[in-house]
Design a protein around this nucleic acid. Structure first.
Lengths: 194, 194
DNA sequence: GCATTACGACACGGTATGTCTCGTATTCAA
DNA sequence: TTGAATACGAGACATACCGTGTCGTAATGC
């Protein structure tokens, strides 16, 4: 049971993630090469390949580390719908910074590497949804959200809208996000009786 | 003014686009190389580079040719909102076939090549929106869509949702699309009086 | 000490890129 | 009919990155 041999170097691990993260901010995932990561981290490419299967995997780990710091769901409890609003705005705000292009790059990488997509869904999409879906279900029960809508579909729409702007490189602002939320909450159909 | 010298070969042009299109269906954009395109088309790589600046540009032209055949807005005229519904379903249906992965690949390519993104927005996104936005504005005027919503934001949401499923490789069906449209039309907020 | 594992440095073959040269083909104008 | 201009297919070339492998050395437990 006792691990034998020289242990993995935490310093090297940290240096690699740091170098990856810096390079992602500077040049984006598209121009990220393992050569650059290794040389900036003072590591060798062998070490990278020993611990990660692909470029996408390294970028993913570096990004998840960063995202999980940046985005934390603080569960204030008033109306569930109001809380959902706050959540969306915080996501949109995060994507407005240098995190946005990195996320777009990761989504792109997911298209060329199924394994990266799997990790992305498993370690980012699924956990986030697992937090938000109960919130929406609570909203249905407390009467702020109408019954009959599938929480997952709500999330497809909202994150879809944010991804859409990200991928098309359309900058977002609070007004845009307010418009999105308004449509999402109230719909676009004219009310029968105003 | 008269063009001098040997004219561009239409046969070669067509063969290249056909080869590109076939390879896109077979292997996707991620595995598309200009070598393969050239050899399948019986052309030389020189010819490809003479007429297109990048892999993305070739893939884009081939895809636009195909998309513009596949998707045609047939303007039946009843309620504008009903027409919008039909449009969305036809887009979702198109993305369900082999076109979906190709679109996802193009969106990915756009993240690594700004010029490809520019062409994509200019030749696909913008013209489509130019068709649909007036439809939505008509819906506002004929009373089926409530005033105050920005047509562009509606499209950000709807296409965002479709792209979202595409990029995360989540297959869609009619039920999902119905759910999306329901939320979009009616919103998620509980009606004050049911 | 000794087995075991991690490390950095480096080399190798493979693949795709973008640019270039070459000989040949096709068009128009003189 | 000749020549200038341009396109074509074939292929060479340097470059870049990839993924793997080898080496000598360093660090840990027994």
């Amino acid at each position: 049971m006792a691990p034998v041999g020289r242990p993995r170097s935490d310093a090297s691990h940290a240096a690699i993630l740091k170098a990856t993260y810096e390079l992602l901010r500077e040049e984006g995932l598209a121009r990220l090469t393992l050569d650059k990561v290794a040389s900036r981290a003072g590591a060798s490419r062998s070490t990278l390949y020993r611990w990660w299967p692909s470029r996408g995997a390294i970028a993913m780990e570096a990004t998840l580390d960063m995202l999980n710091q940046e985005l934390s769901l603080e569960p204030k409890s008033d109306n569930a719908l109001a809380e959902f609003r706050r959540l969306l705005k915080s996501v949109a705000r995060a994507m407005r910074g240098s995190t946005g292009p990195i996320m777009a790059g990761i989504l792109a990488e997911c298209q060329r590497d199924p394994e990266t997509l799997r990790v992305f869904k498993e370690n980012l999409v699924a956990p986030r949804r697992a937090e938000v879906v109960p919130l929406l279900e609570r909203g249905i029960q407390d009467g702020s959200i109408r019954p009959g809508v599938a929480p997952h579909t709500i999330l497809d729409l909202t994150f879809g809208a944010i991804y859409h702007q990200l991928l098309l490189h359309v900058p977002t602002d609070d007004a845009w996000m307010d418009g999105v939320i308004d449509i999402l909450v109230n719909g676009i159909a004219a009310k029968p009786a105003a």
